[in-house]
Design a protein around this nucleic acid. Structure first.
Lengths: 208, 208
DNA sequence: AGGTGGATGTCAGTTACTGACATCGACGCT
DNA sequence: AGCGTCGATGTCAGTAACTGACATCCACCT
């Protein structure tokens, strides 16, 4: 396997992330990314299907990790608990790369086109989880609903983790969000968790 | 307000949906759509931001309808119940346009790019719902989780409605999916009904 | 009739993306 | 060493999405 400089794909990904961060996604041309990595535009498109995909090369591994952990959960686990195990496994991986995740997240959330791509990756993840759950004997539509729910919980927890100062580990935020979801779906009216006096909470007290 | 033929936007949208359905999205050029509507490519881009957006012009109204119904729910309603009301309002609208919805859905689900666009519209919807819930005094992250959950329920119900023969109204499917979600989140274990994982339609509403 | 304004047409240009073909460089084989 | 193979890269030409600048047209108003 002949090659000039090693790690072509990673060099392209790193160059892209940097340029997207500096000039913005739309203001960066693929030719610039390639040049910055010492390659040509054509080579870029041999490694990544399009200009956005360069930021999402890790999606497949993420999916495998998440779904694998769900598959390995004890057979007696309720679907939502199996998904929780996958959630925790994923959180561990992210915990080690917080700065990278932050930088990448900043670029993505700044550009509508990149947000689209991220959403479809998350949808693919949800589909994979649903498939795994069906493999565990969970019928539809429970499998899909549980999978979508798990992804929603991850999104919420990740957002809080990226935004916060980093003292609280992602896995803990995920656990909290999951608990919150159970309460929401149960129909419990959410009581204010902490002393935050943000937008006033009107008269919410009793439940039906 | 000068104009040649009326309903320019609608003519473009109809032409696009037809061509996408016949030749496929990628095999259809914007110039062809415009020509088919008796207009030019440039005019197409004056009405729609890009080639995909022509299929999503109703997203804003949908969002307003959904969020409006949530906002109008009784103040004492639990968040999930308020979202349910919005869900039902949206279902009514779709019920009247089943054939259009089916055709459009077929085109979208056949093309990755269009699925991306649809996802971001749904995400926008979820964001609007979350905002509405916060306006009702629901704190985060319960507002976002409830909103995402509501959208997930809609997706599942819509998919079943489009796939099925149409005898069951969408609103009923939505109600069922919502019940299922509550069961899932409660941790009720939908165990394999008869020990076989066949594609047979499983029992729903199998809880107390 | 004449003027105004919004919608449309025309044209040129950039850039994402693709196919066809040439080239390079490492490796194995004799 | 010499040679051939093969995968990765470079080069070039082409399509089509999308944009900006400017001309033109039609409906309406005075």
């Amino acid at each position: 396997m002949g090659r000039w400089e090693p790690n072509t794909r990673e060099r392209l990904a790193k160059a892209a992330l940097n340029l997207y961060g500096e000039r913005g996604f739309e203001q960066t041309t693929v030719a610039e990314i390639a040049k910055s990595a010492g390659l040509t535009e054509r080579t870029f498109f041999r490694h990544y299907a399009d200009k956005r995909e360069v930021l999402f090369s890790g999606a497949v591994e993420l999916e495998q990790l998440f779904a694998g952990a769900v598959a390995d959960a004890p057979p007696s686990s309720a679907p939502i608990d199996a998904v929780a195990l996958g959630l925790y496994a994923v959180c561990e991986v992210f915990e080690e790369r917080r700065e990278f995740a932050r930088k990448r997240h900043a670029v993505i959330s700044a550009t509508a086109e990149l947000r689209e791509r991220e959403l479809i990756k998350l949808a693919s993840l949800a589909a994979a989880l649903a498939e795994t759950l069906r493999g565990r004997g969970v019928p539809e539509p429970a499998a899909s609903l549980t999978a979508e729910t798990g992804v929603a919980v991850f999104k919420v927890a990740f957002e809080r983790w990226i935004t916060a100062d980093g003292t609280r580990p992602l896995v803990q935020l995920a656990r909290d969000s999951l608990d919150e979801l159970r309460a929401v779906a149960r129909g419990d009216l959410p009581v204010r968790p902490e002393g935050e006096a943000g937008p006033g909470v009107p008269e919410e007290s009793a439940e039906a």
